[in-house]
């Protein structure tokens, strides 16, 4: 396998909780020791329920908030080091936010918003506007009609197209899409997803696609990372994860997808209760409080990521093979060669 374009090592973000006097009373473990690698040209989907640290991971990657610990390497170079200053990193990696309205300046025309980024990287105002209009064309908005408009005059889908153009304006190589299509209605969502796939080919992009919508993630992603309470539960190729989820949480998450078949209705909730509080996460495996296969050891041992199927699929559950017998039949064949890795 080639060297990854973006490598994340032990990324950790703890938000301190302070009392009125500023003394530290605890911390929210939003992201806890997350490691993964992004290969050039792939789309990595990140899924998980609300509050599992998906968006915090995105903001950490974007260097919008400072990590408590851990490193982000772009093409092997540490971000923020002398080799790769933050400004140069921000030319390579861009982000599209969920709220299409909030992410555009209401006082600026669409083309001014798009042209802002390139100008910050030394492109002349005239060239930046030319580039903005070209990009509007590429995202399916006629520059003649849309360049001079203000965000409130556009629909949600059009605004998100503008946001995509804005992200592409500095000619990045990685685009982080943080719930970028989640706020759109279904038909528009499909159009924007297809636009994203077209742009990926046209500009040779690598995507990090964050969503809570499993169908969308399955459609667009090459690989999927399942997060639970600030940690990686499972990471593998999309079809491998959707066909044979190994982690009990992934199994529950996939079982929660609405069934398209009226003869096989999803009736029993596959998972009970709310996620535990990330301020005091459960000891050992963080999922053991809600896991139907939990054993005594689970509340003691933190679960490392185990590699399976020649390092194509990782799971943070040492009992997944045993659980497979108790669980759906498709995972029975999963008890194959196991090697512990330090991801």
């Amino acid at each position: 396998m080639n060297a990854p374009i973006l490598e994340v090592k032990h990324l950790t973000k703890h938000f301190p909780l302070k009392n009125a006097l500023g003394a530290k009373t605890g911390q929210v473990r939003a992201v806890d020791d997350v490691s993964f690698a992004l290969q050039k040209g792939e789309t990595l989907g990140i899924v998980g329920e609300s509050g599992c640290g998906k968006s915090t991971t995105a903001r950490l990657l974007m260097q919008l908030i400072a990590p408590t610990a851990g490193d982000v390497l772009f093409e092997g170079k540490a971000v923020g080091s002398s080799e790769l200053p933050l400004k140069e990193f921000h030319r390579q990696v861009q982000m599209v936010f969920q709220d299409s309205y909030s992410s555009l300046n209401p006082r600026l025309t669409v083309e001014t918003s798009i042209a802002f980024g390139p100008q910050m990287h030394g492109v002349s105002a005239r060239d930046a506007v030319v580039r903005a209009r070209d990009l509007l064309d590429r995202v399916g908005l006629d520059p003649k009609r849309f360049a001079g408009r203000y965000p409130h005059e556009l629909s949600g889908g059009q605004r998100q197209r503008v946001n995509i153009a804005r992200a592409l304006a500095v000619q990045p190589r990685i685009v982080i899409l943080d719930e970028a299509v989640s706020a759109l209605d279904k038909s528009v969502e499909a159009q924007v997803l297809n636009l994203l796939l077209d742009l990926k080919d046209a500009f040779d992009l690598t995507y990090l696609f964050i969503s809570h919508d499993l169908n969308v993630v399955r459609y667009i992603s090459d690989r999927v990372m399942v997060m639970y309470l600030g940690q990686v539960a499972e990471l593998g190729e999309t079809e491998s994860i959707f066909a044979t989820p190994l982690h009990p949480y992934s199994q529950a998450l996939l079982a929660s997808m609405p069934s398209m078949d009226p003869d096989h209705r999803t009736e029993a909730p596959p998972i009970a209760g709310d996620p535990p509080n990330p301020i005091n996460p459960p000891s050992g495996c963080r999922f053991h409080t809600r896991c139907k296969f939990a054993q005594a050891a689970c509340s003691v041992n933190a679960q490392p990521l185990l590699a399976y199927k020649a390092n194509q699929h990782y799971v943070a559950c040492e009992f997944f093979a045993a659980n497979a017998h108790l669980s759906i039949a498709s995972t029975e064949k999963a008890a194959a060669e196991l090697t512990e890795v330090h991801a």
Binding site: Q63, L64, F97, D99, G117, M120, N163, A169
Partner: peptide
């Protein structure tokens, strides 16, 4: 607001 975050993310 996100547009200020986005501006920071563009390296400004």
């Amino acid at each position: 607001r996100d547009f200020v975050e986005a501006a920071r993310a563009s390296g400004a």
